[in-house]
């Protein structure tokens, strides 16, 4: 043990304490005015900020997210996937042959696209759901808190009379809204491409029965909503990771890394015991909505599982974020 080390240790302690104090101050700064306004409000109307105010926070969060170049680029990539699939199928079937070797291999729904352009919606969602969509959500959710922290704007957000729980909630709601937006971008682009390149008309469900095109569109909308809802789990996971670190990049990388790890675990047959508890396990169950009659079992399981993930990681994010020292 050298004296220098001791001194260094003391120095480190000193800094730590100093930041601790600063944190305390920051927290006080952050919540102080909030409480003041709240009290003022309470004096006037006997209640906290109105729900509309939260909606405003949510709206501003959503517009900030959607205005980012990075987000727009991600959405552009998502919109390009159905275009690629559509053109590839069109070229391959231009000589009248079937898609693939006819053995039923390849991505889901791809063989049915030629009968009905609407199936491009399902094929595109099935193609983007394993990687592209959750990766986009991972980027947005991971950035939610950690991005603000690393760019130094989190402190100012908390100065606004919102409170941490409310801010977190607005962030999560914005992320979920983004899930829906991302899914609808894929579905919308797929529908447009499908309508352009392939015939539309009565839809043959995968059970072999026929439903009208209107019903088919309704199913497609339902599928989009279910797909968006299946991303709620990874959104909550990303938000939790985001509260753990002060670096936006680290949070995004961790979320996407977790996603890939879980997907790999989901393919290992020896681990089948834990498969039903992995959040991507029932993702492709949205295909059950294309059966006639609809087979709800797996869809319900999927939504229930996402609910559990949202509850666990949402509350973990809340516990972490409300107890965290905000230094930036």
């Amino acid at each position: 043990m050298s004296r220098v080390e001791e001194v260094e240790g003391a120095g480190a302690n000193g800094t730590a304490d100093a930041t601790g104090a600063a944190d305390a101050n920051a927290t006080a700064d952050g919540t102080g005015p909030v409480d003041a306004t709240r009290t003022a409000d309470a004096a006037g109307t006997l209640r906290g900020p109105s729900p509309l105010w939260t909606l405003g926070l949510f709206r501003s969060e959503l517009t900030t997210t959607l205005r980012r170049w990075r987000t727009l680029a991600l959405l552009g990539v998502l919109a390009a996937v159905p275009v690629l699939i559509g053109i590839a199928v069109k070229i391959e079937t231009s000589d009248g042959g079937p898609v693939g070797d006819g053995g039923g291999q390849g991505p889901a729904f791809i063989t049915q696209i030629t009968n009905n352009g609407l199936f491009l919606v399902f094929a595109a969602l099935a193609a983007t759901l394993p990687v592209f969509l959750p990766m986009t959500i991972g980027v947005v959710a991971g950035d939610a808190i950690a991005g603000e922290a690393s760019s130094g704007t989190l402190r100012y957000l908390l100065v606004a009379p919102a409170g941490r729980t409310r801010l977190l909630f607005a962030k999560y709601a914005a992320t979920c809204a983004f899930c829906l937006v991302a899914t609808l971008v894929v579905a919308g682009s797929a529908l447009a491409v499908g309508a352009l390149l392939f015939p539309l008309g009565d839809v043959v469900t995968i059970s072999g029965t026929r439903i009208s095109f209107g019903d088919g569109l309704l199913r497609a909308a339902l599928v989009a909503v279910v797909v968006a809802a299946s991303l709620a789990g990874i959104a909550a996971l990303g938000l939790f990771v985001s509260t753990l670190t002060g670096s936006g990049i680290a949070a995004m990388a961790t979320t996407v890394g977790l996603l890939i790890t879980v997907q790999i675990l989901d393919t290992i047959p020896q681990l089948h015991g834990i498969h039903p508890y992995l959040f991507p396990h029932y993702w492709l169950s949205f295909a059950d909505l294309m059966r006639e009659p609809v087979h709800w079992d797996e869809v319900v399981k999927n939504l229930g599982l996402q609910g559990v993930y949202v509850a666990v990681f949402g509350s973990a994010a809340w516990a972490r974020f409300t107890a965290k020292d905000i230094t930036a």
Partner: peptide
């Protein structure tokens, strides 16, 4: 702060 983490743990337990 630690008590707050009881919430997610409890939620996971209940689930």
């Amino acid at each position: 702060r630690a008590t707050r983490y009881i919430v997610p743990v409890a939620v996971a337990g209940v689930a």
